[in-house]
């Protein structure tokens, strides 16, 4: 054992929330709406993993690229059939957000029906399950710990390279900034949007495929963690992917470690209130600094009082 199991669980969970928060923020940047169905893509990742590892009996890590493709195609279908149509019809942000809630309900119910179908056909437990025993061990440590950390870091590095170096990534950022100006410059806005929805859906399902390797999963597990995802992305400021990395990791870590610490202090009953921790983050961020960590960073480095505060602490800003 490398670390206490609780800390490892917190890190695995934080990695998943980080990847999901990145996708959520990217959707918010490109479509200007919070995508409530984002957590449900993760639910599809969970069931891709379940189908491949338990029903087909293969190595669970084979399911990760498959989950990426499945999640990406769900994202593309959602954009082509609903979000894109509504955007072109000129619906407002509220109607678009309601449509994502409708998609969330629809996709969750579909996943439940799939799970019941699996139960009926293969006569196994499909609603509540955990795939920890299918994991490999590396020196007594479950492999998913290393895999989750690696995937998280590689995703962040690749995404940074993609968004700053490649032509598609730069055009994606341009579309997020101003779609009309981007189309004037010759960027195919529709196709770029499709790519970005593929990327976010795929990343979400990839994070979902990691979920049953450590935590108990069920079809609605994805839509239950949407609060944590939103808290992570809001903590990061909703306007920058880099903020979402810090915010998602922070919320994911604190959700497990803080619950444990509070349970040690106040008693075991505090565990029931675990969903309140991301909500607390959400409301605190919205009331104190609605632009999140990104806003706080800009306030520190750009405003007069922030620079004064920094110089008092002995930090110099160029």
């Amino acid at each position: 054992m490398l670390l206490p199991p609780l800390v490892m669980a917190a890190i695995v969970y934080a990695c998943e929330i980080t990847i999901l928060s990145i996708g959520f923020t990217m959707t918010y940047l490109t479509a200007k709406i919070p995508n409530f169905a984002h957590g449900t893509y993760a639910g599809y990742g969970i069931y891709v993993n379940y189908t491949i590892s338990k029903i087909l009996g293969l190595n669970p890590y084979i399911s990760f690229p498959v989950a990426f493709l499945v999640g990406g195609s769900i994202g593309v279908v959602v954009y082509m059939l609903v979000i894109g149509v509504l955007t072109r019809m000129g619906s407002g942000a509220i109607v678009l957000t309601i449509s994502t809630i409708a998609i969330d309900i629809f996709l969750t119910a579909l996943l439940y029906i799939y799970a019941y179908w699996l139960r009926d056909t293969f006569k196994t437990y499909t609603i509540f399950f955990i795939l920890k025993e299918r994991d490999f061990q590396l020196g007594g440590t479950p492999g998913i710990f290393f895999v989750a950390l690696t995937i998280c870091i590689v995703t962040v590095v690749l995404l940074h390279t993609f968004l700053t170096k490649t032509r598609l990534g730069v055009s994606m950022r341009a579309v997020a900034e101003d779609p009309e100006l981007a189309s004037v410059l010759g960027i195919d806005v529709y196709r770029t949007q499709l790519y970005s929805w593929f990327l976010t859906g795929g990343l979400a399902a990839l994070a979902g495929a990691m979920y049953p390797m450590w935590f108990q999963s069920h079809p609605a597990a994805g839509s239950f963690i949407i609060t944590s995802i939103m808290a992570g992305s809001l903590l990061g400021g909703m306007e920058s992917v880099y903020g979402a990395i810090v915010g998602g990791f922070g919320v994911g870590l604190s959700e497990i470690l803080l619950t444990n610490r509070l349970q040690a202090t106040f008693g075991i009953w505090v565990g029931e209130y675990r969903p309140l921790i991301p909500m607390f983050f959400l409301i605190a961020v919205l009331l104190i600094q609605p632009r999140g960590l990104q806003g706080a960073y800009e306030w520190l480095t750009k405003s007069k009082r922030g620079i004064e505060l920094l110089s008092k602490l002995g930090i110099k800003v160029e």
């Binding site: 609903v82 409708a102 309900i105 629809f106 119910a109 019941y116 179908w117």
Partner: peptide, 24 residues
């Protein structure tokens, strides 16, 4: 083979989206 409540949810989601697209 599945509880009908999930079919009800599918109906809710579909109805919302269809109404938004065809009868805004």
């Amino acid at each position: 083979f599945f509880p009908i409540s999930y079919f009800e949810q599918i109906l809710l989601g579909l109805l919302l989206i269809v109404v938004m697209i065809f009868r805004p």
